[in-house]
């Protein structure tokens, strides 16, 4: 049994290399996601890229969809957009249902 720990940190910015390790993906794949507009890093050159905020969870979702369902980058981009739309609609629906 490992000793318990309290040292935690919030992951708020990842470089291209860190994001690749985080998602267990290679750089070419991450760059493709950026080209498809799924991810929008801060910084001009890939070497200076910083992925912040929702980009990190999006990258992980994209990786899971790609790995588990075999969806290519264009498909992942579409699925993520539709899922975000669906979630927004479900949130609004839940609000309307709460009112009645």
């Amino acid at each position: 049994m490992k000793k318990s720990t309290k040292s935690v940190e919030v992951v708020d910015a990842l470089s291209l290399k860190d994001l690749c390790q985080f998602c267990q993906a290679d750089e070419a794949w991450v760059i493709e996601l950026v080209e498809h507009g799924v991810l929008s890093p801060i910084g001009g050159q890939p070497l200076n890229w910083q992925f912040v905020g929702t980009n990190i969870v999006r990258a992980k979702k994209a990786r899971r969809l790609n790995r588990d369902l075999g969806i290519n980058t264009a498909g992942v981009a579409l699925v993520l957009e539709l899922l975000e739309e669906r979630d927004a609609v479900l949130r609004r629906l839940a609000q309307y249902e709460a009112q009645t």
Partner: peptide
Amino acid sequence: QERNISVHVPKGIIAGQHIRLPGQ
């Protein structure tokens, strides 16, 4: 095996963010 770890949820965390526990 199951193990318990104690995690500090930082103030101001929001859904979709990740917290990292080094060495766990």
